[in-house]
Design a protein around this nucleic acid. Structure first.
Lengths: 178, 178
DNA sequence: CTACTTTACTTCACTGGTGAAATATGAGCT
DNA sequence: AGCTCATATTTCACCAGTGAAGTAAAGTAG
C-alpha cells in the first residue's frame, strides 16, 4: 500500500547508513540492484493486477502469449520452460490449467513419443486478442515522459545487464570438473 | 536453464510478429516491459541463489536488512510490510522464522499494546555482517561495463518509472466514491 | 461508561512455484 | 537383441505468498 517512491527513499537512506558501517560495500551498485528489484516487483504486481479481470495469472498468460506469437502456434513443455523461466513441474500445472479452459491442446508428438506437443486453439487466439488491447493504455502510461532516447538507453542498459547476468553464471563454477 | 540472452531474442521476435497482427500495440513499450520483467526476475533468482548458502530467503533477508539499517535497529510488522511490499500475513511468517533463528526479538509495544515491536539482536547484526561481504563481488559484476553515466541514467530511468507506477494507481479509480 | 469503528496483527485455507523421485521413451554401445 | 545412459514429462511433498476472517486493543461518539 505504501507508494513506491517512499520505499525507494527509505532504501536510499538505509543503504547510506549501512555503507558507513561497511565502507567497502559497492553502494552505488547495491542501490541500482535494489531499485531494479523494487521496480521489477511493482511491475509484476501491476501486470498481475491487469490480468486479474480475465482470470489468468502472469505465467499462464506468458505461456499462452508465446504460443500465440509462434508462426505455427505450437511448442512443447520443455521449450516453454526455457523461455518462461519456469520449472518443468510448473509447466505441467500451467498446461493443465490452459487445457481445462480450452485455450490450448496437448497431444503426443509423433516423432518422439516422450514429447508432448502443445498448441494454441482458436479459442486461445480469440482470448488473447480480446485480452491485449485493454492492456495497452497501462503499458504506455508506465513510460510517459520517456523520450525516444530514454527508451533506447533503457533498452540498451537492460540488455547489457542481461548479458552480464549470463556471464555471471558461466564463470564461477569450478565444480563442473568431474 | 536457457540463457537470458536467448529468451530476450525470442521475445523480440515474438513481439515483432504479434505487433504485425495487432498493429495498435505499443510495441516498443511492450518490449521494454518484458525486458524489465525478465531481467528483474533473473536478478531475483541470482539474489536468492546467493543467499542460499546462508539458508535465508530474499524476503527474510530484506526484512533483516531494514532492521539492520535502522539507527535504533527496531520496527513493527506494519512498517516492515510497507517497505518490503509484503502482506501482513507473510510478515508474520517472516518474523516467526527470524525469531526462531534468534536474529530478531518480538515484543509488545508499551504505548500501544496492539503493536508488536521487532528488534534486531546482536546475533542478527553479526549474521548480516558475515553475510554481506561475499555478496559484493557479484553485485559489482552485474554492472561491469556500466560507465558512471550509464549508472546515473539507469537510476534516473528506474526512478522515473517508479514515479509513473505510483501515478498509475492514483488515477484510474472511479470506484472510491461511495 | 457503553457501543461502534478503526488499527494491528494472527490464523486458516488456498494458489503458485520448486526440488527430488518416478515413469517412459529414445539413443548409443557391444 | 540387451544394457546403459540421457531426455521429456509427470507426480509428490514441501516452501512462499495472499485474501478473508478472527482477535484484541485503541480511538471516538453519544
Amino acid at each position: 500500500m505504501a507508494r513506491l517512491g517512499d520505499c525507494i527513499a527509505m532504501m536510499d537512506e538505509g543503504i547510506g547508513r549501512v555503507s558507513q558501517v561497511i565502507p567497502d560495500m559497492p553502494a552505488a551498485e547495491a542501490r541500482l540492484t535494489r531499485l531494479l528489484l523494487m521496480v521489477g516487483h511493482t511491475f509484476d504486481e501491476a501486470v498481475e493486477q491487469a490480468l486479474k479481470p480475465s482470470k489468468i495469472n502472469h505465467s499462464d498468460f506468458l505461456t499462452l502469449m508465446i504460443l500465440y506469437s509462434r508462426p505455427d502456434g505450437s511448442s512443447t513443455p520443455g521449450e516453454l520452460c526455457e523461455y518462461t523461466s519456469q520449472g518443468a513441474t510448473n509447466m505441467t500445472r500451467i498446461a493443465n490449467a490452459l487445457v481445462k479452459r480450452g485455450l490450448i491442446t496437448r497431444g503426443a508428438s509423433e516423432e518422439d513419443r516422450r514429447r508432448v506437443v502443445i498448441r494454441i486453439t482458436p479459442a486461445g487466439r480469440r482470448f488473447v486478442q480480446k485480452l491485449l488491447p485493454p492492456l495497452f493504455p497501462r503499458v504506455s502510461a508506465a513510460f510517459v515522459g520517456f523520450s525516444d532516447t530514454d527508451k533506447r538507453s533503457f533498452s540498451r542498459l537492460l540488455r547489457k545487464l542481461a548479458d552480464n547476468l549470463d556471464r555471471l553464471d558461466e564463470v564461477p563454477s569450478p565444480k563442473d570438473a568431474p
